[in-house]
Design a binder for these strands. Structure first.
Length: 204
DNA sequence: TGCCAGGCCCTCTTTAGGGCCTT
């Protein structure tokens, strides 16, 4: 069975809440198909105001860099074409989902569809990790460390690697096909403490 | 540096509170 493609994305933003006026300042994403990155998207975007010193330090994205970047609307229009109607994945998807929905709404584009969360999956599948921050999971799962953290494309690549490792673990542990969102639906439908009971190994 | 928000999940819970995770 062909494994459907997914887009793993990550936003850098001016803060934590689009409802409080925060905006996206960078988008990074990878298109995964057949367990591999087959395409990618990355762009800074100018939110129209200066970001705080904390955000400059946290992301390494300066106001000077943003001043030269295209506006959010232009970037998000191109990004909407990149994701089309593909299922989406992010680490702490509730965060990226809010910003994606807000930025798409600003340009009159269709809202995002299915959105899976590598953090929630990791909490279920890798409960022994020290914590479930993206950077910690990369080390815990012995995945290649990126050249930078807290930049959109690097974080999207890491989240993609965590996603693939989680799929592989589920496939090996529960012997179900790695069909995105089918196992997500099943996994998300039961409380954490019942996951082991829910997935009974299939016939050898 | 850590607050701002919001969803998930745990527990000394469920008529609630607080930690985690994202920038």
């Amino acid at each position: 069975m062909a494994v459907p493609a997914v887009v793993v994305l990550d936003f850098e933003t001016s803060g934590l809440s689009p409802a409080q006026g925060d905006r996206a300042i960078e988008i990074g994403a990878v298109l995964l198909r057949g367990g591999e990155v087959v395409d990618q998207f990355q762009s800074l975007m100018n939110p129209g105001f200066r970001v705080s010193g904390f955000i400059e330090n946290y992301t390494g994205i300066s106001n000077a860099m943003l001043a030269k970047a295209p506006p959010c609307a232009e970037v998000m229009a191109r990004f909407a074409g990149f994701i089309r109607d593909l299922p989406l994945v992010a680490h702490n998807a509730s965060f990226d989902g809010r910003f994606l929905a807000a930025e798409l709404q600003r340009i009159g584009a269709a809202p995002p569809g299915r959105f899976a969360c590598t953090m929630l999956n990791a909490r279920r599948i890798f409960p022994g990790a020290p914590n479930h921050r993206l950077e910690t999971l990369v080390d815990y799962l012995r995945l290649p460390r990126p050249e930078a953290f807290h930049r959109a494309l690097a974080d999207a690549r890491m989240a993609g690697a965590v996603w693939l490792r989680t799929e592989a673990e589920i496939t090996a542990r529960y012997r179900i096909d790695p069909v995105p969102f089918e196992w997500m639906r099943r996994l998300g439908s039961v409380p954490k403490h019942r996951v082991e009971a829910f997935f009974q190994p299939g016939p050898a």
